[in-house]
Amino acid sequence: MERFVDVTPGIRLWAEQIGPEIAADAVAPDPVLLIMGANASGLAWPDALVSRLAEQHPVIRYDHRDTGRSAWAFDRHPYSVADLAEDAIAVLDAFDVERAHVVGMSMGGILVQLLLLDHPDRLLTATLLCTSALDAGLAGAAPDLPGPDPALLRLWQEMDDPRDAEREIDWRVEHWRLLNGTGTPFDPAEFRALEERIIEHTGWYDSPSAHAHADPGGLDRGAELATVDVPTLVIEAPEDPVNPPPHSGHLARAIGGARMVRVPGMGHALNATVVEPVAAAILSHAARGGEHVVSSADERV
């Protein structure tokens, strides 16, 4: 089921719900809300992962502002990164969801941390993957934690460069190759098909880059994470070239009572080889209510 969500005048978000119907019945399965990373459509959550989660839960994914079929309006309506967290609440409201298991990847993980601080009553559990703590800044800006791979930094310099359709897809596939890292196989055909589908879904091939220009103010709230009491799982991607170890460990320690699991070989991409372990970790965490275990040592999936 697809719908559009009006969040502010001039800003409309595309969203869809897959799997069991959302119901207020006490025995109905609780929904899962998926929040993707910067400049990424909700379709970047692989269908195989969504389908696996939807076997047990209603799953909601959506396009951030300036991605996919949501409003591309940054030039007319500039916003902060923190505003994108409030968009997630608007999506839950549109689907009449009081509380959900919320999963955030990359920048989506930053947004989930803001939700943990500002809207804990809307989260049943939180799962964070391929992300950094609020006190580390976007893309690991903290001086005592490693930053992104220099090859990625060089490629990001080209984000706003004009490209025709074929060159744009080539650029995006190369971006995924670097994000994937070397710990798991990279299949360029898999990611080319993904980006072709996202472009078809969007209706044009312009490179989404607004989030790189959004105001990052209001994210320096790492000290508040110790107060979090929502059951939280951190999934570590040991080959992540954006937020490499020890980012996940730092995040897990910063959040009160968080657990951490590691998906061996995983980078900053949800390729076919990591879908099942990531889905299993999310489902297990949701099922157990994310029991609080302070974890300096990590588990493997």
Rank of each mutant, 00 (worst) to 15 (best):
S284W: 12
A269K: 01
N271D: 12
P245N: 09
L270N: 00
T232Q: 00
E224C: 11
G265E: 00
R253E: 08
V242W: 06
N271L: 07
V234C: 08
T232W: 02
A223R: 13
V228M: 13
G249C: 09
T232N: 11
P241V: 01
E224W: 14
V263M: 07
I282H: 12
A279W: 11
R253P: 00
T227R: 15
A281K: 02
R288N: 13
E236L: 01
A258S: 09
I235P: 01
I255P: 08
V228F: 13
L270T: 10
S248Y: 00
R288Q: 12
T273W: 09
H247W: 08
A254Q: 03
G265P: 09
G256Y: 06
E224Y: 14
A281P: 02
V261C: 08
A258Y: 03
T227P: 12
V242D: 05
I235L: 06
V263N: 08
I282Y: 05
L251P: 01
P246M: 06
G267D: 00
N271K: 00
L251C: 08
L270Y: 04
H285C: 06
N243C: 15
P231E: 01
R262P: 02
S284T: 15
H247M: 08
H247D: 12
P231F: 04
D229E: 15
H250Q: 11
E236H: 09
P264Q: 09
E239S: 13
L270M: 11
E276W: 06
T232G: 13
G256K: 01
H285L: 00
V230M: 10
M266N: 01
V263D: 07
V242I: 14
A279V: 07
A272K: 08
S248P: 14
A226R: 15
R262D: 02
R288C: 12
T273K: 04
A237R: 10
I255F: 06
H268L: 05
R288P: 01
V230N: 11
V274T: 12
H250A: 10
R288K: 10
A258P: 07
G267K: 02
S284H: 14
A226C: 13
A223S: 15
E239I: 09
E276N: 14
L283R: 10
S248K: 00
D229P: 11
P241W: 03
E236C: 03
G256D: 05
